[in-house]
Measured scan of single mutants.
Amino acid sequence: TFEVERIVRKKIVHGNTSYLVKWKNYSSKDNTWETEDDIRTKYGDLVDDFEK
């Protein structure tokens, strides 16, 4: 199971928000862009903290 360590960046393309996710126990080269809906479902607190 993958676990988010932190959110690195945010991008908005054509009105759709995605977050660059750093995965726990993986290197930064393994970071992936994930949709806001996918990340918010399980890691809403991390998204809220990133947006502060």
Rank of each mutant, 00 (worst) to 15 (best):
residue 14 H to N: 15
residue 50 F to L: 03
residue 14 H to I: 05
residue 25 N to G: 15
residue 7 I to R: 00
residue 32 T to C: 03
residue 36 E to H: 05
residue 3 E to Y: 04
residue 26 Y to D: 08
residue 21 V to P: 03
residue 47 V to M: 08
residue 11 K to M: 10
residue 50 F to I: 02
residue 51 E to D: 06
residue 33 W to P: 00
residue 48 D to H: 07
residue 15 G to S: 05
residue 2 F to H: 15
residue 36 E to Y: 08
residue 34 E to Q: 09
residue 20 L to H: 02
residue 52 K to N: 11
residue 34 E to H: 10
residue 45 D to H: 14
residue 5 E to T: 02
residue 30 D to H: 15
residue 16 N to Y: 11
residue 52 K to E: 08
residue 35 T to C: 09
residue 52 K to L: 12
residue 18 S to R: 10
residue 2 F to W: 14
residue 26 Y to Q: 14
residue 22 K to G: 03
residue 42 K to F: 12
residue 42 K to M: 11
residue 30 D to P: 07
residue 7 I to H: 00
residue 35 T to W: 12
residue 17 T to R: 04
residue 4 V to Y: 02
residue 40 R to D: 03
residue 23 W to V: 02
residue 40 R to E: 03
residue 4 V to T: 01
residue 23 W to H: 03
residue 22 K to R: 05
residue 13 V to K: 08
residue 12 I to C: 13
residue 35 T to E: 10
residue 36 E to F: 07
residue 18 S to K: 12
residue 23 W to G: 01
residue 48 D to I: 08
residue 38 D to P: 03
residue 13 V to S: 09
residue 10 K to N: 10
residue 10 K to G: 02
residue 32 T to R: 03
residue 35 T to M: 10
residue 20 L to F: 08
residue 40 R to C: 05
residue 28 S to L: 07
residue 6 R to D: 09
residue 8 V to H: 02
residue 18 S to G: 03
residue 41 T to C: 11
residue 27 S to G: 11
residue 43 Y to V: 06
residue 28 S to W: 15
residue 39 I to L: 15
residue 47 V to Y: 06
residue 23 W to T: 02
residue 34 E to S: 04
residue 16 N to W: 08
residue 19 Y to V: 00
residue 14 H to K: 12
residue 29 K to E: 13
residue 47 V to G: 01
residue 31 N to G: 05
residue 30 D to G: 10
residue 40 R to S: 04
residue 43 Y to N: 08
residue 9 R to A: 15
residue 25 N to R: 06
residue 48 D to E: 12
residue 49 D to W: 09
residue 19 Y to W: 03
residue 24 K to A: 08
residue 33 W to N: 00
residue 35 T to G: 06
residue 30 D to A: 14
residue 8 V to M: 09
residue 40 R to P: 01
residue 1 T to R: 15
residue 34 E to Y: 10
residue 33 W to V: 01
residue 30 D to C: 15
residue 42 K to D: 09
residue 15 G to H: 06
residue 48 D to Y: 07
residue 9 R to L: 10
residue 37 D to E: 13
residue 28 S to R: 05
residue 39 I to F: 06
residue 37 D to R: 11
residue 40 R to M: 08
residue 48 D to V: 07
residue 21 V to R: 00
residue 31 N to W: 12
residue 29 K to R: 09
residue 37 D to T: 12
residue 14 H to Y: 09
residue 20 L to D: 01
residue 19 Y to C: 02
residue 26 Y to M: 15
residue 4 V to N: 01
residue 22 K to Y: 04
residue 36 E to N: 03
residue 17 T to E: 03
residue 44 G to E: 08
residue 24 K to P: 04
residue 44 G to I: 06
residue 25 N to P: 06
residue 40 R to V: 08
residue 50 F to V: 02
residue 30 D to T: 07
residue 9 R to C: 15
residue 27 S to Q: 13
residue 27 S to K: 10
residue 2 F to Y: 13
residue 1 T to H: 14
residue 36 E to V: 06
residue 30 D to I: 10
residue 40 R to N: 06
residue 30 D to K: 14
residue 39 I to A: 08
residue 46 L to T: 04
residue 33 W to G: 00
residue 20 L to C: 15
residue 35 T to K: 12
